[in-house]
Amino acid sequence: MREEVKAALEQVRPFLQRDGGDVELVDVDETSGIVKVKLKGACGG
């Protein structure tokens, strides 16, 4: 599941970067399916 999440983030990353932001994968809980990300830059607020 972690690799699928990474692939999905790579698809949206260019759009976030275009607005001065980015996204970082923090954690993937395989059991519950919960994904935690950290928004950076202009997206941080």
Score class of each variant (00 low, 15 high):
M1E: 10
I34A: 13
G45I: 04
V35Q: 01
P14R: 07
G20R: 08
S32E: 07
T31V: 12
V23D: 01
K36L: 11
E10S: 14
D29A: 13
M1T: 13
C43K: 08
D22G: 15
C43E: 02
R18I: 06
G21F: 00
L16I: 12
K6D: 07
F15L: 14
Q11N: 12
A8W: 04
E3G: 09
V35R: 00
K36A: 09
Q11F: 06
S32A: 12
L16G: 09
E10M: 07
L16E: 02
V28R: 00
V37P: 07
D22N: 15
E4Q: 14
A8F: 07
G45L: 08
A7K: 15
V28F: 02
V12A: 14
V28A: 00
F15D: 12
V26R: 00
K40Q: 11
E24G: 04
G20M: 09
E4W: 04
A7G: 11
L16R: 04
K6P: 03
E4I: 08
R18C: 03
V28H: 01
D29E: 09
E4L: 11
K38W: 01
G44D: 12
G20T: 12
G44L: 05
D19F: 07
K36T: 14
D27K: 15
R2S: 09
G45W: 08
L39F: 08
R18Q: 15
K40D: 00
Q17D: 06
K38Y: 00
D19N: 14
V37W: 04
L9E: 03
A42L: 07
L25R: 01
L39Y: 02
L16W: 00
G45Q: 10
D27Q: 15
E3R: 13
P14E: 05
E30N: 09
D22V: 07
D29T: 11
Q17N: 13
G21K: 01
P14M: 08
V37T: 14
R13M: 12
K40M: 11
G44K: 13
S32Y: 03
C43P: 02
A7S: 14
E24M: 05
G20F: 05
I34C: 05
E24I: 06
D19L: 14
V26D: 00
R18T: 14
V23T: 05
K38T: 03
R2A: 10
D27T: 12
G44I: 02
R18A: 15
M1V: 13
D19C: 06
L39N: 05
K36Q: 14
G45F: 10
A42D: 08
G33C: 07
V35N: 05
V26H: 00
E10V: 10
K40S: 06
D29L: 06
L39W: 00
V26G: 03
G41C: 07
K40V: 08
T31G: 10
K36F: 05
P14L: 08
L16P: 05
L25I: 03
A8T: 14
D22Q: 07
R2D: 11
L16F: 08
T31L: 12
L9V: 11
V23L: 02
D29Y: 03
C43N: 06
K38L: 04
V5N: 01
